[in-house]
Design a protein around this nucleic acid. Structure first.
Lengths: 209, 209
DNA sequence: ACCTGAACACCGTTCAAGT
DNA sequence: ACCTGAACACCGTTCAAGT
């Protein structure tokens, strides 16, 4: 039993690793829901005792943070073609990010409840937000307006996903599709942001002081 | 020890009752958070064993439903003066309800995570939604438009509260107040609904067929 | 270094038993 | 009718022990 495989610990399916633990946790949650995620069950799924997990993950909270990050990581604007023209076309960027966020959440609906407890700690997700903020300010929004634009669109998107993933109130049979409701709300917000911006950059009456 | 108090069981502070159990549960959650709510701790708080609670509440899930209902029950539109003119002024009604929902949730921030798991079962809350829907259709919105209007405003409001109660991403020090962000988004949505309605009731080009 | 067994202080819930 | 004690099958986490 010499160490014949000491160099490939990261992808090694034999030993544990933080990545393997987190990946399996996400699979478990996707399949059986958040409530089914216990250290003991996760350990069993991986073929180890629960206590072994603590070698690779600090806490259960740490594990949940990792799930959060996995779902939110690497958000690329959906339907917005060329990154080069984001600065000019902030509306396509912001809309694309909202659609990407919606898709990511709907791909892992069982993870959505986490967004209720934890602030957005995942650095990958914060980076996405940062990119959006930069693009918005580069295209002429003030820092405050950019921040508010992102907030307002994010709020609506996660609220929408909450409604969609547990069928909140008004989803009677005559209802329009949820996706069209999402688009309606999203466009309403983007429109309001654009309107305000137009009002600010081209004031009719009093000139810029 | 004759039964000197047999007639006032509902408000009797000596015996248990569903109402007393639920009220205390809400107090516990408000003070210590959802995670602190266990049947055992709640029982102890009331001076009984945990198992006694099962006489008045079917489940822990049932208890959580009751919390849900307590927070959402009896939503009265905030800032909308006269119920008599709701049919005419759907915008004041819908805006008032959104503000009332926001206030109710912010009064019990620890309960907010529940909105992530449970569909809106509470009959009191569904009644509020029903009232709003009726007012909207009476004021000329189609059934579908009314439903969508309520959804879209509800989505934004609960998304907003989620951001506000756990400080999601973009709340840097230079940020506008969260209340003003809420108002901006809410007005944007109401405006879009009004615009669409205006477009539908007074089409410029082709007359109503 | 990595994994494990036993243990601690908790859970929700059932059920027979008390009054 | 209403409350309780003991019990069952779970939790997260620590810590000393194994290899």
């Amino acid at each position: 039993m010499a160490r014949t495989r000491s160099s490939l610990s990261a992808t090694d399916p034999v030993g544990l690793s933080r990545e393997r633990v987190c990946r399996e946790a996400l699979a478990l949650v996707d399949e059986e829901g958040l409530a089914a995620l216990s250290m003991r069950r996760l350990g069993a799924r991986l073929g180890f005792e629960a206590m072994s997990l603590y070698r690779h993950v600090r806490d259960k909270a740490d594990l949940l943070d990792a799930l959060h990050a996995a779902v939110l990581g690497d958000l690329a604007p959906e339907g917005a073609a060329d990154p080069a023209d984001w600065p000019a076309n902030w509306r396509a960027l912001l809309g694309g990010l909202a659609r990407a966020l919606r898709s990511a959440l709907l791909r892992h609906p069982n993870v959505v409840p986490l967004f209720t407890r934890q602030p957005l700690r995942a650095p990958e997700a914060r980076a996405t937000v940062e990119r959006a903020r930069a693009a918005l300010t580069r295209s002429g929004l003030s820092a405050r307006d950019a921040e508010e634009a992102i907030s307002v669109v994010g709020m609506f998107t996660i609220g929408h996903v909450l409604f969609e993933t547990n069928g909140v109130p008004t989803d009677g049979p005559g209802g329009r599709g949820k996706e069209s409701t999402f688009r309606f709300g999203l466009e309403a917000l983007l429109e309001a942001i654009a309107r305000r911006q137009a009002r600010r950059t081209a004031p009719r009456r009093r000139p810029r002081k």
